[in-house]
Design a protein around this nucleic acid. Structure first.
Lengths: 376, 376
DNA sequence: ATATTTTTAGTAGGTTCTCTAATAATTGGC
DNA sequence: GCCAATTATTAGAGAACCTACTAAAAATAT
């Protein structure tokens, strides 16, 4: 029944959450600043703060001597104790395993990376993942008990409720894997599993180019092409967790779109490498390379256009291996989409780089922790 | 700052809303039933009910003599006063104007319809709309002041915040029209404008085949083809209010897909009529007609498939003029989609008929009213 | 050095709302 | 006519909020 005020203590929980949110959103605040920010009375804020202090969520900070002191009795200042807990974001990719440790304010305190062969067995890959998590905790000086949640990103379709991989065509033997179970003992908090494309979208909304947009289509173009959807600022997963898997649609020929890049120069290396060779050539003014890019963008736009028409997003973010090309892809894509759709749509290239997926995993973990801190 | 309990009275508002919700969701409830439903203490529920009664939102009902009486002191029964307010849902279509009047429980108390020529000027169409609203109010015995909100559905892209029509290729001179302004004086409450396809989706979720699903793609196939999206049970409009306008994509050839029906028999009448002739023939076992339907469904599935891959809905509802065909379209569409997409998706034909859009407009109006009744 | 001004800290009192617990009322069945 | 069951009604205690007041601490003016 949604929310029923059965208990006057509900007010206190509500107010404590509001005060904590205000503290969380800022560096350090005086009591009067908190009163203004929350529009709760001073007496109550005072009381709430005392409770938050004893719980370890807030802390009084002494004003530094170098700060300019205003007239009047000096105000006590309080800050959110971001070090009261940590989260780990883990990206299990085909070629690497990457773990980020962050405090409750989302500050990344450690980054660990470890190379994995694309042909590695699930057991080997999981072992590498576990090792990199243990190493980042050690480096950050943390115990497993300090970690409130572990966010995990992986390719393929996942079931977040079960913490399992449902479909995976990239990693051998990965489908059906119980990721949450396999990584369960590493940290005290729950293991939250997400799809890499979706989590990249989350990262873009958090610290990428999509901070101001709430309806975002986030394309991850690499070897395969998929999209993560943010609707109302929140991830939209879909019935099967397969929302945004537009690359599947053979009618668009996306699977072959990338092959165009191989037609330029040497037919070797990863798709990203082949693509980078072509972009390099375009920057040199090579006409053949330009034609290849144009043709690729036209293919891309047909699929992205269908998704754009479906959800009419505020912003399309181009991420993954292709995002390095920047305006070389963004500009023509924007034009093609304007042709296909009713309204022009903003298109931007991601600037987060190779850590975007792991960053999204951190955000996933933080979302969980913040819900418990700030809700009800 | 979301919700801060600045005042013990917040609890009362919260509890009053919870009690009213419980009352709204049922026919009549005793105090003890309310206590169980809301898990609020009896003393409080009693107090809350007294308040609701004096506001006119709740009413005590005497138990009817024919009801079997249990042992013990007879319980007082209360009910939601649905007649405390009404809403009107208005569908302004190319050929007709349809108005439904409903009470606060969504019970339709009157239906008025009026034919309009597809070539009518905006002024004529608006005059017909106003007339039909006035007539339904008179028939329901209501004053404009009794109407808490007026929901309006129309073709084309609309801006709900401004209450204006942005794009309309069906109704001459309709684009740019300030609908909310033009219909402002008719009722006391606000005028809420929505796209017909979207509102049909809302209706399906309310009283159609989509009551159990929260992520729904609702196709409205008539002369043009568009879809309404429900995400998390709520309408997704998109940045420009154009979400679901997949019919625009010329690559799919949807604009011509309907022409197939004209190729069978006489080349006359509306698309819906031509289609009905073909379906009739299919039911008689005509092979040529079956082939036409199959080809049509294949075109349809390409476009719907793109939308399904994008949002991965729980259910696809086939509505509009084509929904009468029922399984003749649904069954093959389901099969085609299963081929194109990663996961099979539920497909159902709408059963709401020609009033679905107006019903959605009622729902839009009720959503507004219920927010004010049940929230905070 | 002292008084003034400014700003914040801390305290007290009253109100609202909640819950629990005990008592009173009303009905059907024996 | 009494008993059991169920609900209505009343009373009292606790938690949390707000406003208003007094006390304290620092910078600044005299």
């Amino acid at each position: 029944m949604t929310l029923t005020g059965q208990d006057p203590a509900l007010l206190r929980r509500l107010n404590a959450a509001a005060v904590l949110r205000a503290l969380h959103g800022s560096d350090a605040l005086t009591l009067t600043q908190l009163v203004n920010a929350t529009s709760i009375s001073r007496a109550t804020v005072e009381d709430v703060i005392a409770g938050l202090q004893s719980e370890g969520h807030a802390e009084e900070v002494r004003p530094r001597a170098e700060d300019p002191r205003p007239v009047g009795r000096p105000a006590k200042r309080y800050r959110f104790r971001a070090e009261a807990g940590h989260v780990v974001g883990l990206d299990i990719g085909p070629n690497k395993v990457l773990a980020l440790t962050a405090d409750l304010k989302g500050r990344i305190v450690d980054t660990r990376r470890s190379a994995v062969s694309p042909e590695a067995t699930p057991d080997d890959r999981l072992a590498a993942a576990r090792a990199v998590v243990r190493r980042t905790l050690r480096a950050a000086g943390l115990e497993p008990a300090d970690v409130r949640a572990l966010g995990v990103a992986t390719t393929g379709v996942v079931d977040p409720a079960a913490g399992k991989v449902v479909v995976s065509d990239r990693l051998p033997g990965w489908a059906g894997l119980d990721l949450a179970g396999a990584l369960g003992g590493l940290c005290a908090g729950p293991v939250l599993v997400g799809n890499d494309t979706n989590l990249a979208a989350l990262a873009e909304h958090w610290r990428g180019v999509a901070t101001t947009a709430d309806d975002v289509l986030c394309i991850l173009a690499g070897r395969s092409i998929a999209a993560g959807l943010l609707i109302g600022g929140k991830l939209h997963l879909g019935r099967n967790g397969a929302a945004g898997e537009i690359g599947v649609m053979s009618a668009f020929g996306w699977y072959t779109a990338l092959d165009r890049f191989y037609s330029y120069g040497a037919d070797e290396g990863s798709a990203a490498e082949a693509a980078e060779r072509v972009f390099e050539a375009v920057r040199r003014g090579d006409h053949e390379a330009s034609a290849i890019v144009r043709a690729f963008v036209r293919d891309l736009a047909r699929g992205v256009g269908a998704a754009v028409l479906t959800m009419d997003p505020e912003l399309v973010v181009l991420g993954g291996g292709m995002s390095g090309a920047g305006d070389l892809l963004v500009e023509p894509l924007r034009e093609e989409l304007a042709e296909l759709c009713l309204f022009p749509v903003r298109v931007e290239a991601s600037t987060l780089g190779s850590e975007s997926v792991a960053l999204g995993a951190v955000r996933l973990a933080l979302d969980h922790v913040e819900r418990s801190l700030f809700d009800v």
